[in-house]
């Protein structure tokens, strides 16, 4: 009898502890999501006296987004390209830096301080100021090798990504602070005896990396990819963010259309992460 009472009490305490989240989820996430889904099928007008007026227009907002509003689809495509280019670069760089920091080096803490610095100071207004001054491009790099001249003879679909990465190298790198820490934590957890056993068996560092290190941190790569996608998608300077916000206060389109765009954006992001997850899971099974 007493045991039963205890476990019920435990349940109640559990709910009590997470109750802020439960309430918040219902009223600040679930309800707003449904509300915004509803708005996306409506033409929304906001007037001073009678508040929010909605008029049901079925899929018109969605149709408008895909077939009339050229800028939205274009910016979504641009964002997709940006994701496809930036995410691998960020992940690879974060992994390389984490591997370097995990090796036996002096001044490890000094370098860690530097590599975490961008997490502290990156805001869209700072990046904006830097981009306008051209300070996000490495001047030395363009002195040493003239990327645009080099890539001029290449096919467009190769030249463009290469140009993009080099022109935005600093902003891309600045987004990898947290990912470095995630990798570093994973690397530190790998059992040292595994490396030693492999070395005794005559494995080279290169083989050890591919056969031991990489499989061990495979789950963290997924975590980091998802985190990077979320980070880039929330960034105010990505191609899509300003469009959604501008449409909120645009008299001819308004909150209804902005909601539709936001839902397309959400589905796009979930689709991106979903396809990536499916791809890695399937590859993991083979």
């Amino acid at each position: 009898m007493k045991k039963f009472k205890n476990s019920t009490l435990k349940q109640i305490y559990g709910y009590l502890f997470i109750s802020p989240w439960l309430l918040g989820f219902i009223f600040l996430t679930a309800y707003p999501m449904l509300y915004s889904l509803y708005l996306s099928f409506n033409k929304v007008k906001i007037t001073a006296d009678s508040g929010i007026i909605t008029e049901f227009i079925k899929f018109d907002n969605y149709k408008y987004a895909f077939f009339t509003d050229v800028s939205f689809v274009q910016s979504l495509v641009n964002f997709l390209i940006q994701l496809l280019l930036s995410v691998p670069v960020i992940i690879v760089f974060a992994l390389v830096i984490a591997l370097l920091l995990n090796s036996k080096i002096k001044m490890k803490n000094f370098f860690r301080t530097i590599f975490f610095l961008p997490v502290i100071i990156t805001s869209s207004s700072v990046i904006n100021e830097l981009t306008q001054q051209g300070a996000t491009q490495l001047p030395g790099l363009s002195d040493i090798l003239n990327i645009s001249a080099l890539t001029a003879t290449w096919p467009v679909y190769i030249a463009q990504p290469v140009n993009y990465i080099f022109n935005n190298l600093i902003t891309i790198l600045w987004f990898s602070g947290i990912q470095i820490l995630v990798f570093l934590a994973g690397l530190q957890k790998i059992n040292v005896s595994m490396y030693e056993a492999a070395k005794i068996d005559g494995a080279t560092s290169w083989e050890i990396f591919w056969k031991i290190t990489l499989p061990a941190i495979q789950p963290l790569i997924i975590v980091n990819v998802v985190y990077t996608v979320v980070l880039l998608s929330a960034f105010p300077m990505n191609p899509v963010s300003p469009i959604i916000r501008d449409n909120m206060f645009n008299i001819s389109t308004g909150f209804g259309y902005a909601s539709a765009l936001a839902w397309i954006y959400l589905i796009f992001l979930l689709g991106f992460v979903g396809i990536y997850a499916l791809f890695t899971v399937r590859r993991g099974r083979d």
Binding site: P32, L39, S259, Y265, V273
Partner: peptide, 12 residues
Amino acid sequence: TFLIPQQTLMIP
């Protein structure tokens, strides 16, 4: 919920 972009939540 971590995956839901702010852009979707901010309007409602």
